[in-house]
Design a protein around this nucleic acid. Structure first.
Lengths: 331, 331
DNA sequence: TTGAAAGCGCTAACAG
DNA sequence: CTGTTAGCGCTTTCAA
């Protein structure tokens, strides 16, 4: 990788002349500009990003910290972030917190040291559970940008991208009710998360609003279970249900698959609506009706908010919370 | 973020003294060392990584380019890379090629500019299809490390991490044969990839080795189809089968789900073995028998190979190809 | 035992 | 129109 200096020597001009020529400064003659540009092309010159970052105190890199990359939601969100960032000439450094407060703080610390201009992050369940966000405050203290998405908290003031978890599920539940269902089960693999609670609340609210009493034994919690299949089978043998709302992709697919096996006769009369996405809903046949959170759009929106702040150098004006609309897909 | 200079001023010593004290140089008195270290702690001083990178010409960052992050295999591999790298004090910059040669080359170019010490990459299907690896050669020219994994090519000489695709499927097919199956179907969603072909070959070889004639109408190719469900249904209505080998996670889940719906009576007598992983195999009930490629281990192995090279500064000694053993999990 | 100075690759203010 | 110079934050000779 040739440097400015070497290029300058080759051409018998000064380093600054080369730099300016390549930046199309108006005080360089067309002739030299042309000469320099051609040489740069020939030698395949690329400005060294590290040097640039040091010089202008801008890395053009955003740090992304997510709890779990194996979760399709986060993988998709990351995809959205990556796309938008690349498009706008930013790199993305990714760290995974494994839902641990400590790892989250470490990653933050690691990236803080002149590596990134700002952060996009979704909080670990541990930080959320312990209500501990001191490490997050570091970000503002160091004048870095911050956007939270999906797993957020009121305790931190910054731009956010969220969905209306409660309402999404409320609407989905209403759809089942409108089909005459009144023994609707609720399955969840994320009861430990705030948004898992919100989703459950949406389900319960939809029921009570219409005058159906909430039957808690129709709620099935798979969170952290080592034998989710067993739990679901036991549930099906004990409960009579005529519809299902699921809080996440995993429980949607599992529940549907077991339902098909255990109750093949009535399976087709038991509609299920769960959180999922285009690709995952296709993994089950007939494909699963789903609430799409638009994970990719959430990611790119988060990147957009962050990059806007960074480019306008306005890290302090009033925070925005963007609520991404969800879509219910029925087949 | 306080700098060395500022810290030095606070303490009324020179910048170099602070630097040396923090590095425990032997020529600084214990007293000043202590004083300086305490101050550094107090002010929460962190060396600026960008400056360091520029100074020592080492970024401690590896660039990862994968074709698709929504594919669980790559998400897991990335996970493995990320874990190992973080553990060894390296950051990871991720780019997604979307299986396009152009994006792959762009990302490479982007990261080359002093951002990373080396690359871990899995080739885009386009590069593979066009047999075009000129952009990859850039890496060696710029004296950066390179490890290829999963989607590799003989055309590039570097460390690699692969699995024996053909043998894995061969073994899985043999298992079905040993159960007395002789009308075994082969489903694939990755026929466009070299390794998809290898997997198919493993299936066919196992059959012919045992003296079963390969029936091409038992091979179902879903690659790129807009209506995979339709294809599978049509297939099931036309073919009589007594076992299934699947080349990837998506087709495993889809096929099994449709089989259960369309042929509920014989479903349980038709074993399926497909590529998958612990988590995904659980999405179907009964859980799917699967070939585990150990994606996470592949990722961490790739990171290990790269970091070893980087740390030993030995980019040129003979290339290693590591073959990760696969495991067949039956339930 | 400590400090001054050079230099990594680059930009930009200022001088010529 | 072109060049000189300083400096981003750091490490590392070399000198004091």
């Amino acid at each position: 990788m040739i440097t400015l200096k070497e290029l300058a020597k080759q051409l018998n001009v000064s380093v600054s002349t080369v730099s300016k020529a390549l930046h199309d400064a108006k005080d360089i003659s067309e002739g030299t500009k042309k000469r320099i540009k051609e040489a740069a092309l020939l030698y395949n010159y690329r400005p060294n990003k590290t040097a640039l970052a040091l010089k202008v105190n801008k890395t053009n890199t955003i740090g992304v910290i997510i709890p779990d990359i194996l979760n399709p939601f986060f993988a998709q969100a990351l995809h959205g972030i990556e796309d938008y960032a690349t498009e706008h000439n930013y790199d993305t450094i990714v760290c995974v917190s494994h839902d641990q407060l400590k790892k989250e703080a470490q990653s933050l610390d690691l990236l803080m040291q002149g590596r990134v201009d700002g952060f996009i992050l979704s909080l670990s369940s541990e930080s959320l559970a312990q209500n501990d966000f001191l490490h997050i405050d570091q970000i503002a203290l160091n004048k870095k940008g911050l956007v939270l998405f999906d797993r957020t908290t009121d305790q931190v003031d910054c731009d956010k991208v969220v969905i209306d978890d409660e309402k999404s599920v409320y609407d989905a539940t209403q759809i089942l009710i409108s089909k005459g269902k009144n023994k609707i089960a609720f399955v969840s693999n994320i009861e430990d998360l705030n948004l898992g609670q919100l989703r459950k609340k949406g389900y319960e609210k939809a029921l009570s609003d219409i005058g159906i009493e909430v039957n808690h034994s129709l709620s099935l919690d798979l969170t952290g279970s080592l034998d989710p299949h067993g739990l679901i089978k036991a549930f099906l043998s004990q409960q009579e249900i005529d519809g299902v709302i699921s809080a996440d992709n995993t429980s949607s697919l599992m529940f549907k698959s077991i339902l098909k096996s255990e109750k093949p006769d009535i399976n087709s009369e038991i509609p299920l609506i769960g959180f999922s996405d285009e690709k995952n809903s296709l993994l089950s046949y007939p494909r699963i009706d789903y609430i799409d959170q638009n994970a990719m759009k959430i990611g790119s929106k988060a990147a957009e908010l962050l990059i806007n702040r960074l480019e306008s150098k306005d890290l302090t004006s009033k925070s925005i919370t963007f609520e991404m609309p969800t879509e219910i897909h029925l087949f």
